[in-house]
Amino acid sequence: MSITQVLTNPNAFFAEKTRTEVEMKTPILIILVIAVLGAINAAIMTQKIMEILPPEAAAFAGIGAIAGAIGAFISSFIMWIIYSGVFYAISSILGGEGTFKRVLEVIAYGFIPSIASGIIGIIVMVTSFSVENFDMQNPELLEQAIVNDPTMRMSVLIGIIFTLWSANIWIFGLVHARNMSVKNAAISVLVPVGLYILYTARHFIGA
């Protein structure tokens, strides 16, 4: 069983995967890679913003970049647990059976598309994202400028596409991890993911 099969045929992958004991080394490694990519992305963005601040504030650019990287790193693991918890809770209401640990395992595999998304995000951040025209004196205007930046919008759009890919994987993960129908697994996944995408699209793309 190849891990790449989770991207091309998640139904068959999880059908075989859930016949074995829960194994957490690979899931943790997947989230760790995503966390590292997220930390790099956050550090680059924070560094770019801090570099055009007034000299007295720019002195803290390194600290800001480190803080941003640590926050992004930790948030990847937190989001893994939150996603798993929400899917577990909704699937429980719909009659799902199976352990939370198994759900954690299959949800981690569903984050694999985020690795590609993270790499693309870093490339976009390094090559395209610019803060030269941002107003550093007004935090509200700065936030709005970031939201309206075409590069950021494109990055968010790419993130939404990869999230939908992950959602497809999560659906089949829940089918086998929670012994559910495809319909109920789809409800368990698409309701929270749909709300997240609508919020993101409204906040960035529709800004």
Rank of each mutant, 00 (worst) to 15 (best):
A35E: 12
G71I: 12
E23C: 00
A201S: 12
V106A: 03
N133I: 03
A89S: 13
A57C: 03
I146E: 10
E143F: 00
E132D: 15
I205V: 09
F111D: 06
I28Y: 06
P27Y: 05
S76R: 10
L37T: 11
I52K: 05
A207I: 03
S84A: 15
W165G: 09
M125F: 04
I112N: 08
N184F: 05
I120G: 04
F14Y: 09
A167C: 08
G64M: 05
G64F: 06
F204T: 04
L198E: 06
G110N: 08
G95H: 10
I3L: 14
F13T: 05
P139V: 10
V156W: 03
L104Q: 04
R19K: 14
N184I: 01
T163C: 03
W80T: 12
L29A: 14
K183F: 13
I49K: 04
Q137K: 13
K48L: 12
S166W: 07
A207W: 03
N133E: 13
V36P: 11
P139G: 10
V124L: 15
I34M: 02
M45F: 12
A108S: 15
N168V: 09
A116G: 13
T127M: 09
T151D: 08
E56F: 10
N148H: 13
S76N: 11
T99R: 06
